[in-house]
Design a protein around this nucleic acid. Structure first.
Lengths: 222, 222
DNA sequence: ATCTATTCAGGACAAATGTCCTTTAACCGA
DNA sequence: TCGGTTAAAGGACATTTGTCCTGAATAGAT
């Protein structure tokens, strides 16, 4: 990526101040292809990523071998920020879902140029606090509502522009809302019978957003 | 509370630097009795609390009227820190479970004396990041394990020194692990039959910590 | 001590969800 | 085109969990 283009990004999203004070020079552009891993759960963490383009999937494997999809990340989300603050190994695996552009910055650089930089610290605070609220919300949501509601919410949030979804995403969906693939199918079948969605060859199509919205009330998976 | 005593607290827990730069003068000692509310969900937030002694309960009421116990707070946890960063109304209700001593500091003071104070910002970052990890952990735990495991974990974490628990805590327990009171009773009955606990008059007594630990594997409710 | 109001435990049944396995449908190479 | 191979869907059944209601236990007032 061109330096000029990176500067434009930073400017457009008001991040120029955040990376002032010498941090800017340590930003390294990186690109990934769909399917690439940015990092793996358990690895030692040594750098933070700022996502510029594309979509990331954050997954976690439990001690008992069950996989959980924790979230999807979109442009200007941070990855590795929590680990930087806590100095812990990576909790999660991060995979590119689409082609991805990002910048990375080493923890060393952050320590040297960021630890006393209020603008940068406030940026971290705001980002992490937002993550906290999001997680808090989805935790309540998961405890409070049955799979039907969670799935409807998922379907709505994953199809903001095009109303279709490849069936292969369903296994992620199950791991995201914390249910079994079997049960997911059961609920999808119900949605289908209620004419909320349509299953054709290898895609799910939303045909009644209103109806799905009714079944949710609140949305979470942004 | 004496100023000297407060200073001793701050010193003992290495918080003197955190509240340097003029923040220290804005710390106001406050005390609450068991059952008092520090603040209510939906209120406008205007101050942050640092808990010094006692125990707080954080609860949330959902749109559909279901109550959720989100966590318990112990000395040196912060309350209102997230709301300070995000500038949002209070998400949760905070209640004193025991007699409580705390210090409060107004958002106004934080803005004026804290926003450019790296030590204070780093303190916020560490605290909030820890909260995030805790929440992240409990969310995975809730999605991954059945009520039996969650309840065993709860029982262990709530009885670190004395092995008993008043029955009145059970309704909070149900709201904390996200199940019904009825089902909680069912599982407790099972524990009782397996000689893991004993129910006498109005208390639950842990009689086999090992056995309970076996049913958990990981602990969460700290 | 007795009555009563309140709190707590548990029975009965229904609904939600998980596990295991079979069937169906899509895809691919020859 | 065909057969085989793989991925997705669904059947059958068990388990977990929720809802509603009843009955037992307890504390407090008289």
């Amino acid at each position: 990526m061109e330096q000029a283009q990176l500067d434009e990004y930073l400017d457009r999203f008001q991040l120029t101040d955040v990376f002032a004070g010498g941090l800017r020079d340590h930003l390294q552009p990186v690109a990934f292809q769909a399917g690439d891993w940015l990092c793996r759960q358990g690895d030692a963490a040594d750098r933070m990523y700022l996502l510029l383009e594309g979509k990331l999937k954050i997954t976690h494997m439990s001690a008992t071998g069950k996989r959980l999809v924790l979230s999807f990340k979109h442009p200007f989300d941070l990855v590795g920020d929590i680990e930087y603050v806590r100095r812990t190994p990576l909790m999660n695996t991060v995979e590119a879902v689409t082609p991805v552009k990002a910048v990375s910055i080493s923890y060393t650089a952050l320590e040297q140029k960021g630890a006393d930089n209020p603008a940068f610290l406030r940026f971290l605070l705001e980002t992490i606090t937002m993550k906290f609220e999001l997680k808090s919300h989805s935790m309540s949501f998961n405890l409070l509502y049955p799979v039907e509601v969670r799935l409807a919410s998922y379907l709505l949030s994953m199809t903001p522009e095009t109303p279709t979804l490849p069936v292969s995403d369903l296994v992620d969906a199950a791991d995201l809302i914390g249910t079994s693939y079997r049960h997911l199918n059961r609920v999808l079948r119900q949605f289908s019978q209620d004419n909320l969605i349509e299953r054709t060859n290898r895609t799910i199509t939303i045909i009644d957003r209103e109806g799905l919205t009714e079944r949710v009330g609140e949305s979470i998976y942004e």
